[in-house]
Design a protein around this nucleic acid. Sequence first.
RNA 1: GCGGACGUGCCGGAGCGGCCAAACGGGACAGGCUUAGGACCUGUUGGCUUAGUGCCUGCGCAGGUUCGAACCCUGCCGUCCGCACCA
Length: 947
Amino acid sequence: MDRKWQEAWTKARIFEANANEQEKFFITIPYPYISGSLHIGHARVVTEADVYARFLRMKGKNVLFPIAFHISGTPVLGISLAIKNKDPQKIDLYKEYVRTYVKNEEEVERIVASFEDPQKIVDFFIPKMKDEFSTLGLSVDWRRSFTSGDIEHQKLVEWQFRKYRKSGYLVQGKYPVLYSVALANAVGEDDIIDGDLDPVEKQEFVLVKFPFGDQMLVAATLRPETLFGQTNVWVNPDVTYSVAQVGKERWIASEECFDKLILQEYNVTKTGTVKGRDLLGKYCTAPFLEKEIIILPSKHCDPDRGTGIVTSVPSDAPFDWMSLKTLQDSEDLCTEYHLDHKEIRKIQPIPIITSKGYGDLPAVTLCQKQGITSVLQKKELTEATQEIYKVGFHTGVMKETCGQYSGMATTKARDEMKAALLTGKKGAIIFETSRPAKARDGSKVVIAVIDKQWFLDFTVGKWKEHAREALKKMEVVPEKYRKQFEDTFLWLDKRPCARRRGLGTKLPFDPRWVIESLSDSTIYMALYPLCHLIRQYKLQEKHLTEDFFDYVLLGEGKADQCGVPRKVLDALHKEFSYWYPFDHRHTFAAHLSNHLSFMIFAHVAIFSKHQWPKKVTFHGMVLSEGEKMSKSKGNVVTLLEVNERYGADTFRAFMCNSTSVESTCNWETAEVEKMKNHLGTLCRILESCIAHRATGPLPKSTLSLISRVERITAQATEKLAAMELRDYATLVLFELMNWYKKGTRKLTREDLARVNEYILTRWLLLLAPLTPHLAEELWQKAGKKGFISIAAWPHADISKINAIAEYKEEFIENIENDIRTVCRLVNVQPKEITLFVADHWKSELVSLVKDLLKETHDQKTIFNAVMKTDLRKRGEDVTKILPALLKDVGKIPTFVLGQEDEQATLHDACADLEQTFGCNIKIMMADKTTEQKARAALPGKPAILVR
RNA sequence: GCGGACGUGCCGGAGCGGCCAAACGGGACAGGCUUAGGACCUGUUGGCUUAGUGCCUGCGCAGGUUCGAACCCUGCCGUCCGCACCA
């Protein structure tokens, strides 16, 4: 059934939107990146956008909902490289993908082999992705689809970057990246073994230079603020260090270190070596202290970490403290290294930082506390180091031993001391990975500094100011994300925007660089109004010049210079002006700090104010059976599976009904099955409505049902307009059904048929955005003309909303429940039930109190006010009732019907109640009986006597 | 570390100062319908309470503000998300 309607829609082209006189609505979602089969994560955003788009279309808007595809970046390239390199895993994986579409094994082989060419991957998967998306029943205008590799897109991006450059937003500079020497390339998280599980970060070490004769001993530290506590320098006695000319200086450091420095834009010439052992016992000059300190042995200096030389701060570094202690406690060890044991024993830790609860010598204190007695307790030492770092760094204050930095917070001292080292040429910077890491080919990952990296500099000029202005005017749903935008805008600084590899658009003025994939996808929505027309008019690459885009998008520039007839340009400009800006972008919340923010920046950089984004909405993530979807867990649910097992409507209904748009959706097969089941029931009910219809006046007993239907219509409309899809779905899938069942239970066949006639169209229309296939099918079965997908959204007849009728129904229901409670408590099968309607004066009292409550909740005030009226005559009773009433205002009925109406309502329901309880039911006025029980009656709560 | 969000019944999840023992959905239990199963219908599903439509306890934990708090404030505990060159 799904396929049938999808084809019918395509054939009738009802979702192809063109500029016209109608009010437009242009909704977009992030174009998906090709990565094999689409799964329910991809499907969430499009489904939600589609429900909304369908609603607005039915509301009479000219809705454009397009989808394009993103192919930029390294992943697609990575696939083709892997296949070129005959990577068996990747080949198998892609064979499997292809097999889902192609049955002939030879053909599968041929297709996968062709993937050596990345374009072939794109060519193969794009149509499949469109098909897979289509199985969801999307109301997408596919004519306007393109990929980020298409020439139209590339030309647009080139135009965008030329604009950036003219505005001074593009700058060049040095930049550290994760790098593999063997691959001679930068590597991303995906390229690193376990890069996703244990991310590799870039750490900045400060190199500290120790004058040592005419050379410099170079140590590396993460904590320059501790340098006043230096007592000695550690070198590894078993390591042979290198000596190298670095600029005008001669440095001593590990060979590995120099290799890294070479990659980090240092001018290094290795000139010789020196054994660690030979440095022991000698002295070098410590920066800040400006005095000689001794060089001592430590086997824990790793030549592949920093420089392989470590400056020792035993007061704050547990490793240093234990190393020092080992040496001090062992005369033999000193003798082995030809050190004067007495001298070594004189070395004392220097207190430098006071931090909460650790005293002056946190390393000493903590080692004692944790029972650390040996340098070999590596794990404990590392933990202790981290703890001191955390506490010392965030709560610490520099002591009087720290010269001009005394009294300063450690965080501040750190920055200032680092700066002092750098400006005084006593220090430098080296980048290290936060953990040892290997690329997928096994090669070591280090950090390289790229020179002349292109950046987008968000801090230039009024860029941020404009972005904030755009944000201010933009609708953000949920509103709580606005603050997150503001915060993001604050820390956005310079962003590298080009790489040396990957698919995408080349920088027009520096074609060695490819524009990075998040930077090339910030204004592509501007192509949706145009792309199919550019193709229709057969415009070529040579036409898509700066002038072309200037004119079509901005209405400025020299229109005659691009070789496109003015008429065509005007047609394009007109279409563009009609649609742009987009009215709504629906996105994953995780995209906020990058894609969405860049999108806003790009728009304010390129477009004028009236073309800035109008609205952004966010959805939550999708879990599968309570867990993140991943191939390794095997819980990825593809759209192909969804289509096979459940069909589009079940998917849509589940997705929208299971959770609110902004929350996490948990896909649980058992729950989805239930939804499928429910839709089956719903379908049967609607079919019986179709089969059994008649025109004619509706009986009085359906007043409340009609009221509810109208109310639900109004609510559904409201919820949809606010994109509160869960509430909408619950209303039309469940509430409407429940009220229908309840409200039609006791109707005659004839009345039922009339209700059916009334409700059927309404119900189908309300369902149409959510379950379009089901709605379309039943619409046709009911003999309605045209597609329900483009039928007019129903108006709620507010005048039929009858709160009193609804209340009366609840009133009777409450009585039923109360009678049941009483019967259960008394434990009798009732033979006769008497209902006593409360006295007239009680209605007066409750009405009065209800009014008074609008003003105050103060018991005294209310009591006094009541006593001023005629009710004073009932003073004693009032004193009894009032406190109870005020204690729980829930007891006060929504409407005070009054004695007459209450009695009449009970009379109307009497027959039903008698049937329900299988006994005779008497209704009496409480003031017309001597029965004690009757005195308990309250408005809305008749007293009940069971016999 | 920085920034943000969340914590409600057997479960998913509403509620965002009074109408809350808590919408809606699901599960479980009991009954009806049925050859049976499914579907469907009815009732029950925190504790106490056998003349009663009530009372008590309860919305992560501990306090506070208020006539009144799941909802506001403070602290604590726990869970999740984002932090850029990655799509």
